[in-house]
Design a protein around this nucleic acid. Structure first.
Lengths: 143, 143
DNA sequence: TCACCAGTTGAGACATTGGCTCAACTTCCG
DNA sequence: CGGAAGTTGAGCCAATGTCTCAACTGGTGA
């Protein structure tokens, strides 16, 4: 995703929110951080920004759909800069690579479940864990 | 799920594991704990059993399929005594009720995704959040 | 029955992830 | 430019879980 700091800053400064120094710093730090990152990494990549601000901003970005949260296999959570569209993740248990999933079929199955259970479902969390193609090849060739 | 303490104890004492006092205490405490519970609640329901043992045993029971872990809407995790069969959960954001889902359609969609991504998927985590029928009714009548 | 040893335990410190408070500060609007 | 309102960060708190390690114990072989 070719997000730029300006795009992120622009998204931040919506609905009565201010574009402050720390937020700018975070916007830039986000871009230096690779595909996914822990909150702690963002904290370190943004010198001078306090811990509370990092978490606050992360939450804000999640609400804006600019960042999504991924729960890893072992329970750790990482964040990911990404598109606003609804999607899920496949995570490699070996190298940690995260790939997006967008499956109409899956969404429909989820919809059907909502109906069957009688629940009014308004959110869900879905993560798949496995081994990415690269790590599969590596595992085979190292045998 | 009419689990009895004996059933749980039996399941614990498999593959070279010992049936110890603390484990018996935990097996009985589990039965007093309602549909789902936090680790902390189990700890309190099992007097004399140390924190480390509670978490160790919970992990053991998860590996045996006797207990499953549910990540709540807000990130808290609760545990649930349940069947070994693979299933997912719908969680009511209001009253916390947890219901099981077992959908062939969903499993198939997940399988298709695994193929599409090229990942060798071996596990996943899926939770749906919403409002249960009871809370929906309550919300309407309190209007 | 007994002794032994591998598996198990618990106290307590530590780690991780995140939230809260509140006085000081900064943005941005008028 | 001035001030209200949004924002910040230091530091402390909380929840959830892990680790260490000496002491203990279940179950087995004799």
């Amino acid at each position: 995703m070719g997000n730029t700091a300006q795009q992120i800053e622009h998204a931040i400064a919506g609905s009565g929110r201010r574009l402050t120094g720390p937020r700018r710093t975070l916007a830039e730090a986000l871009l230096t951080l690779g595909d996914h990152f822990a909150a702690e990494e963002l904290l370190q990549a943004a010198p001078g920004v306090g811990r509370a601000t990092v978490f606050r901003t992360l939450r804000m970005l999640q609400e804006s759909g600019l960042v999504c949260q991924v729960v890893m296999d072992d329970g750790r959570t990482v964040y990911r800069l990404g598109s606003e569209e609804h999607h899920h993740h496949v995570i490699c248990s070996e190298c940690g690579a995260v790939a997006d999933i967008a499956s109409m079929r899956l969404e429909k199955a989820l919809g059907a479940i909502a109906v069957e259970t009688g629940y009014e479902v308004d959110a869900h969390r879905l993560e798949l864990y496995g081994r990415c193609p690269g790590c599969r090849v590596a595992a085979i060739s190292s045998t």
